[in-house]
Design a protein around this nucleic acid. Sequence first.
DNA 1: CGACGATATCTTGACGTCAAGATAATATCG
DNA 2: CGATATTATCTTGACGTCAAGATATCGTCG
Lengths: 160, 160
Amino acid sequence: MDHVDRILAQWQRERPDLDISAMGLLGRFTRLRNHIGREIEKTFAERGLTSASFDVLAALRRSGPPFQLSPGDLLATTMVSSGTMTNRIDQLEKQGLVQRLDNPDDRRGVIIALTPEGLERVDEAATAHVTNQHRVVASLAPDEREALDALLRKLLATFE
Amino acid sequence: MDHVDRILAQWQRERPDLDISAMGLLGRFTRLRNHIGREIEKTFAERGLTSASFDVLAALRRSGPPFQLSPGDLLATTMVSSGTMTNRIDQLEKQGLVQRLDNPDDRRGVIIALTPEGLERVDEAATAHVTNQHRVVASLAPDEREALDALLRKLLATFE
DNA sequence: CGACGATATCTTGACGTCAAGATAATATCG
DNA sequence: CGATATTATCTTGACGTCAAGATATCGTCG
C-alpha cells in the first residue's frame, strides 16, 4: 500500500465508473521520474551543471573529436525545441564551456564546439553521473533491472 | 537498436572506462517520460487544463464531498513546492474552478474548494484521462503492464 | 499570561521550457 | 537566372517551477 495505492482507492470510491487499471503504473512512473530527476540534478548541481546543460555537453563529448556539432544535430538528440536549444547554448557559452564557431559550409548555420574547460567538466561530470545512476537503481537486482529495461524499451518503441 | 542504444555505443567508444550498464535503463526512462508527458498534456489541453492544474483538481475531486482541502493537504499529494502550489491555486481561481475560503479553525490557513464548474470540468477530464492512459500503454500486454508496475513500485519504494 | 519557536501560506526573483514567428541563407525548378 | 519553397537558427512572450525568505497566526511552556 503505497502513496499511489491510496490515490487509486480514493478514485475507486468516488468514481467507480472509471477503469483505473492503467493509472497505477503511470502514477508510479511520474512520481519515480520526479524522485530520480531530483537525485540526478543534485549530482550535476555539485559541479555547476544541470541535466539540461549536461545533455548538450554530453552530446558533444560522445560525438568524439573534435567535439563539434551543429545546433540542429544537438536538437536531434535532446528532445527540446529550437528555442530551448538556443537558450542552452547561450548559457553554456556564458560559462565558457562551449563556443559558437562559423560554419564554413553554410552561412545560416553555426558549429557548437566544446572548449577545453567544457571537455574537462563534462568528463568529470559523466564519471560522477554514471556512479550516481547505479546508486539510483541499486534497489533492483540485476535481473530486475534487465527486465525493467526491456519493458521500457518496448514501450518506448511505440513513440520513436 | 533504438536511439538510446546509439547513445550508449557512442559512450562506449569514447569513454570505455565508464560502466554504463545503468545508463540505458535511465535514458529510456527519461525519453519515455517526455513522450508520455506530452501525450497526457494534449488531452488536458483540449479541455483548457494542464497536468499541473488537473493534479490539483483531481486531488480535490477524489477526496470526496465537499471537495475541499487545505493548500497543505494538496502539497502533501502533489510533490511540488509551496510557491508552486500557491501559483497553481491562483491560476485555478482565475479560471473559476476553485475558490479560496476562510478556514474557520485557523486564521493562518485557507480552504480550497472545487466550484460547481470545477467539479464538472475535472469529472469530464478524468474520464478522458483514464481512456488516454490506456491508449498510452496499449502496446504492452496485460501481464507486461503488471510486471512493469511491480518493478516501478519496488523502485519507487526506495524513495518514499 | 507572555514570549518564542513552529506552522500555513504567500511573495520574490531567477530559470528552463515551449509555440509561434522572424531572419537570413540555401536549394530547387521552370 | 530568378522566383519560391525550404532550412537553420534565433527572438519573443507566456508559463510553470523552485529556493529562500516574508508574514501572520498558533501552540506551548515557563
